[in-house]
Design a protein around this nucleic acid. Structure first.
Lengths: 131, 131
DNA sequence: CATTTGTTATATAGCAGATATAACAAATCA
DNA sequence: TGATTTGTTATATCTGCTATATAACAAATG
């Protein structure tokens, strides 16, 4: 099972699915062109409703991570295409805004720029390690 | 007016208030010991309900940014105290988790570690600039 | 052409955000 | 001391989002 759902978590189920798919792509567990389970099959496996999975797939499609084509189902987008696409630019803007806000909050708690930079690079290196 | 509310934004009003107070602390627009408007006064100024402001203040208190004492009202915590407090450790854990997830999503979109580090440091420097 | 795919349309139940009114304990000020 | 202002709590209502359920649709496959 590639995905696991926590019904007790505060994060909505459809966002849990979305995040875990993105994480799997980042870690190389899902490759460009790979086919995801059908919304009905995954919903059955996870014990959730069809529409919950469909909402996650539609979000991933809107964000550019997936491509849907009729009965072909959901397939992983080529990251090269994604990185060059327009949708990625808005993603970069959101990334910058998120990083800016995290830095502001760290500063408000009395943290320094050097400490923040250290934590950021530490977490980034860990996220970019090969799976 | 220190705060401004966007009723059309998807972010809840009480979180908008919370974030703007934290940002003001980070930028030095609010100093340790400064007194915030009363929940009733701020609610009236912003055109929102008393409980919406109270929810934001209670959250800021739980996060350690504010201290409440009877009629003394809400006052800004000393960042030095905050940075040394236990509540700051869980804040650091959340920061690390957020940074890790942002890096994972950037990698999933075809970004590199170097690019991410550059954007992170760029935003951090901007956030730590003096107001 | 029948099947499987994602998609859309309705409807329902539950939870959170926001509002409204009311009352309470604690600290301040006259 | 006593009235006032502070944050806080208790109900209640309304709205929107999450999740579920049933049903039907267009597109692509074999």
């Amino acid at each position: 099972m590639l995905l696991s759902i926590d019904h007790a978590a505060p994060e909505p189920i459809y966002l849990q699915i979305r995040t875990q798919v993105v994480t799997a792509i980042a870690r190389g567990e899902l490759h460009p062109g790979d086919r995801l389970p059908s919304v009905r099959a995954l919903a059955s496996d996870l014990g959730v409703n069809l529409h919950t999975v469909n909402k996650a797939y539609a979000l991933l499609r809107d964000e550019g991570y997936l491509v849907m084509r009729g009965r072909s189902g959901a397939r992983i987008t080529d990251p090269a295409d994604l990185h060059a696409s327009v949708g990625c630019e808005v993603g970069d803007e959101r990334l910058a805004a998120s990083l800016h806000q995290l830095a502001l909050e760290y500063r408000a708690r009395g943290g320094t720029l050097e400490e923040f930079g250290h934590i950021a690079l530490q977490q980034a290196r860990q996220a970019f390690e090969d799976a």
